[in-house]
Structures are given as structure tokens and as C-alpha cells.
Simulated assay, not measured.
Amino acid sequence: MPDIQDKDAAPAILVGVDLGLPHFDAELEELGELARTAGLEPVGRITAKRKAPDAALFVGKGKADEIKALATELGATEVLFDQALSPGQQRNLERHLGLPVNDRTLLILEIFAQRARSHEGKLQVELARLQYLSTRLVRRWSHLERQRGGIGARGGPGETQIELDRRMIGDAIKRTKDRLDKVKKQRTTQRRQRDRQGAFNISLVGYTNAGKSTLFNALVKAQAYAANQLFATLDTTTRRLYLDDVEGVKAGRSVSLSDTVGFIRDLPHGLIDAFQATLQEAADADLLLHVVDAANPHHPEQIEEVQRVLHEIGAAEVPQVLVFNKTDALQAAPRQRSDVFELEGAPVRRLFVSSRTADGLPDLRRELAERASSERTPQPGAQLHEEPA
């Protein structure tokens, strides 16, 4: 079924293949949001059901012909797959369809490249992009099969262009990793400084577009970029949050609050590896505020995906508080402000808030004050520095 097209965006066909996995997005809603975020406009959607991907065309020849016919009918200039394609499948599909074909992984990489602002963020995205590109050298360029060699030629005798390009990308990956290692050491030094000062460290984590940055701004009165879109911000920002004494709780101290990059289903492993320095903020935290979009009907699956990534980065054992955000968007308001939620078989405190209207934020501040007051206290005279990444 055709979508309403934005005249300023390149038209794209969305393709999803149901392989029997529980998280299949039959409406391709999230892929459509990713496409719009990357500057494309979905004009048509096609789904297929298979027991396993076709080795050559992923969807099989019959479905590939259907995609080609729809793309021609709707004037699409690109085809986007909701699953990761192998280099061979991508190359074969482009030849069959006569159009550029990209997968979910490249789409997320493109968005990250557009959104990265800090030096660290740009390095992380560049590393992930190079790692992805290193597997795609045989994708489109037949000239890479030509050999080069002889007197005055670059490379050894008979060295092919593809070998040269692969070596150049390998060198670029090494340089980028070296630069990121320096950034990682700087972050480690900053965290050690906060530890010496006795800072209680809190990190916001959650699925992309759950409202983490809006909640961060509401708590610390900052101006971090926040928007109703996927991956609105990629760069970790750390600020000081002062927690007043509240009834029955003696806090009266500053804590460190960090806003981190959002997670998403099938987040490319290259990005998780590349963003290790940033995601380490979550692994080293004393408390995680796991922000959930309460108005999203798929929030149970999103919670599971966040937990999967937390396990992958070594942050699964950090204590959590679930913050069900965007209650103002619910048709019926929650009957209570807090309760206990079972997360991976363990009881976890859950609070209901609206970052936009500030409803429930006093209860969240009280929860943070209780957590901070039960932990270590800062050393006399210690100052907590603000650290925008």
C-alpha cells in the first residue's frame, strides 16, 4: 500500500521478511521512522514470510520481481530491508532490481553519521562505518577486480585493487581505533575523578525516542537537544543534579547524571563496539534510570531489547529504576504513581512520570534522594565537575 510522500525526500520501498522471530514488525513502522530520520520517504511497503532467507536474493526471485514492479509503479529510487543483508545478497538484489539496496544496519549507521556532534561521537560512527564498509568492497565496483602492479605502481606485483582498498580501510580502522582509545582513557580518568570525589553516578538508558533527553533536561534544567525522533542525540552529556532533603530522607548532596545514546532493535554490533567508551558510562553507574515510552504499545519488547544490550556491555548487574515516561500521552492515566515491576525475574521499582508536564518528577527525585542517601557520601570539600561529552 502506498504511503503519503514527502516531496523533498527520496522515495523508498520498505521490505520486511518474517522469519518466525517474535519481534517481526509487520507494519514496518520502525523501519519507516528510521527511513524518515535518514532523509528518505517510504512510498510503499512489502512483507514476505519465509522459513529461511534465500541465499541469493534474501526474499526469493518471485518476491524480488514484486518489489521491482512496485518500485517502478511508485517511482522509488531506493529499496530498504528491515533485516541485515549479506554483501552477496545486497549485490544480487541491486543487479536484479536496478536500484540501490540498503539494509537496516546501513540505515542506522547513516543516521548516526548525521547526528554525531562531538569529536568522540564522530570517531565512533566513523569506526563502525569503516568496519561495515570493509565487508562490502565487492558490492558494486567491478573495477576492484582489476590487478595493478609493475614498475612505479602502488602495491606489490599482481595486487588487485580490492586488496589495496581493503588494506587502506584496514589502516583507517586502526588509526580510528587508536584515536578512540585515547578518548576512552580520558573518560576513564574523568570517572576515576568522580569516584575520588565520592560522586553517586546515575545514567539514563532506554530505547530510542523514549524521552531520555527530555527527562534529563527536566531534572537538571539543561538544554540538551531533545526531539520526537529516533536517535535525536548520540553524545553523552553529564551534569550535576542536586538532590534536596525530602521528608524522611536526608540527601542534601549532588549526584552525577548522564544522558546516553538510545538503544534500538538489532543495533549493529559494530556500533555497540564503537560506542563502548560512551556506553561504559552505563556499566560504571551506581544506578540506571531505565526510561520507557509508556505510550508505545511495543514497550515490553523495547524493555527486552534494552536489557539485551545492557547484558552485552556488562551493565546488567547495575541496580535499575524503571521510569515509565510519557504518561500524558496515555488514554487513561496510571492509577498509581509507583509500583513494583518484574524485570528478568527480579522485582524493580517502577515510577510513572511525564517529562513534558513534570507530573511524577517529585516522586522520581525522592526515589533518587533515597538511593543516593543510602550510598557513599562525598568527601569534604569535593567539587563535582560538569562534563559534556
Rank of each mutant, 00 (worst) to 15 (best):
I4L: 09
Q5I: 02
D6V: 09
D8F: 04
P11E: 11
A12M: 07
L14F: 06
D18W: 09
L19P: 12
L28C: 02
E33C: 02
A35T: 01
L40R: 05
P42L: 00
I46R: 12
T47R: 13
K49V: 09
D54L: 10
A56G: 00
V59T: 08
K61N: 13
K63V: 11
A69H: 04
L70N: 04
T72A: 14
G75E: 04
E78Y: 00
F81T: 10
G88E: 14
Q90V: 01
L93K: 06
R104V: 10
R104Q: 12
L107K: 08
I108T: 00
F112Q: 08
R117F: 03
R117N: 00
E120V: 07
L123I: 10
Q124V: 03
Q124D: 03
V125F: 04
L127Q: 05
L127M: 07
R129M: 10
T135M: 14
R140I: 07
Q147M: 09
G150I: 04
G150F: 04
G152V: 02
A153R: 03
A153T: 07
G155W: 03
E159P: 04
E159G: 03
E159Y: 07
T160I: 06
I162W: 02
L164W: 01
R166N: 11
R166H: 08
R179S: 12
R179C: 06
D181S: 14
V183C: 13
R187T: 05
T189A: 14
Q190W: 15
D195G: 11
A199T: 07
V205F: 05
T208A: 04
A210L: 12
G211Y: 00
G211E: 06
K212D: 03
F216K: 05
N217Q: 09
A218S: 13
K221L: 10
A222L: 11
Q223R: 14
A227P: 08
N228D: 15
F231E: 00
T233D: 11
R253A: 02
L257Q: 04
D259Y: 05
V261T: 02
F263A: 06
I264H: 12
H269S: 14
H269E: 13
L271W: 13
L279G: 15
A282E: 08
A282I: 12
D284R: 12
L289F: 05
L289D: 00
V292K: 01
H299N: 15
H299R: 14
P300M: 10
E301L: 15
V306G: 03
E317Q: 11
Q320M: 15
F324P: 01
F324Y: 14
N325D: 05
D328Y: 12
A332N: 02
A333G: 01
Q336D: 10
R337V: 10
E342S: 08
L351I: 09
D359P: 00
E375H: 14
G381S: 02
G381M: 11
H385Q: 15
